[in-house]
């Protein structure tokens, strides 16, 4: 299959913390989806185990939202198969729905209702009622420190608090698989951290967590990263391994003029650099290069650094394109 040939490790390769992982709860095989002539998802294989956090990283238009919509049962499966918690999504859609928790990118709260009313409404949609529903609401409000806001209308809550209510909503029916579409959109750094604490807690409880993101730093926190480009999977491994595959280090130069600096380095030091955003980059393990580059560029450079490669470097190496 062309989609996996570029990936360095096959899907079932052991991961960093494979020993602590459970069964495969989400299994996608050869998934295709097109809108008319436009191919959005072009043969993706991917699996998520219990206790694992997997981030699907891609630019806008890479197919991650389509993938998310297929998994959340909003779009039908055109080709390929998706199995969630052992059930084929095409054959058992309602049963699958009761096993997945979904957090959409756009808010799904009814802002005219209180926090409590939103949770109760959600509970009813998942067949919870009476004592069971009340207990579950109490527990989740407590877990997300929302108890003192439970009677407030959702329109009076801050963005971070709303997200917490969304999370509580998604967890109400104890899903086995949690799907999140760009979960940290609109959150400040503090709220992002507490979101990740909550996700980690879920994974520890044996939930399979699959999230989409276009943020490198966010994907780097996951146990495993799936890189998507033009509907194809181009990498699938632990972030540290993906970076390690690139070799030792990356030299990053922030010059005043990108094109000038690139030309100078080529001419004087015979260095092949790549323009990534506002920087020039190249694989490099030798610290002495820093001094040479500094000499060559003189005052026209703002900073020169050597570091371990990040996921952006991985993306550039795999696709030959910039991420942003």
């Amino acid at each position: 299959m062309t989609t996996t040939s570029t990936a360095t490790s096959p899907i079932d390769a052991p991961h960093e913390s494979a020993s602590s992982l459970g069964d495969v709860l989400c299994d996608i095989r050869d998934l295709h989806h097109r809108y008319g002539e436009n191919v959005a998802v072009d043969g993706i294989d991917l699996s998520v185990r219990a206790g694992e956090i997997v981030a699907v990283l891609g630019k806008n238009g890479s197919g991650k939202t389509t993938l998310f919509r297929v998994l959340s049962t909003l779009l039908p499966i055109q080709r390929g198969s998706v199995t969630l918690d052992g059930l084929n999504i095409a054959e058992h859609v309602d049963a699958v729905r009761s096993r997945i928790g979904i957090i959409f990118q756009s808010p799904s709260l009814d802002i005219k209702l209180t926090v409590d009313e939103n949770l109760r409404c959600q509970g009813a949609l998942y067949g919870l009622s009476g004592r069971e529903l009340s207990d579950r609401c109490d527990a989740l409000l407590e877990q997300f420190s929302l108890t003192d806001r439970r009677r407030d209308l959702c329109q009076t809550l801050s963005g971070g608090l709303k997200r917490r209510v969304e999370l509580a909503k998604g967890l109400l029916h104890r899903p086995r698989v949690m799907l999140l579409d760009e979960p940290s959109t609109g959150l400040d750094p503090g709220a992002r951290l507490s979101l990740w604490d909550a996700l980690q807690q879920l994974a520890n409880d044996g939930v399979a967590v699959l999230l989409t993101t276009h943020l490198m730093e966010e994907a780097a926190k996951a146990n495993r990263v799936i890189l998507l480009d033009q509907g194809k999977k181009i990498a699938d491994d632990a972030p540290s391994r993906l970076r390690a595959d690139l070799g030792g280090g990356v030299l990053t130069i922030v010059p005043d003029d990108l094109a000038d600096a690139k030309a100078i380095l080529k001419r004087e030091l015979n260095l092949e650099t790549q323009i990534v955003g506002e920087t020039l980059r190249m694989p490099c393990d030798a610290p002495e290069v820093v001094a040479k580059v500094s000499d060559a560029l003189g005052d026209d450079v703002q900073s020169i650094s050597i570091g371990r490669p990040n996921l952006e470097d991985v993306f550039v190496a795999r696709t030959g394109k910039q991420f942003q």
């Binding site: 909003l74 309602d94 729905r97 979904i102 949609l125 067949g127």
Partner: peptide
Amino acid sequence: QSVLVSPAG
């Protein structure tokens, strides 16, 4: 959205 992805149908 959240109603349509629920098992209630």
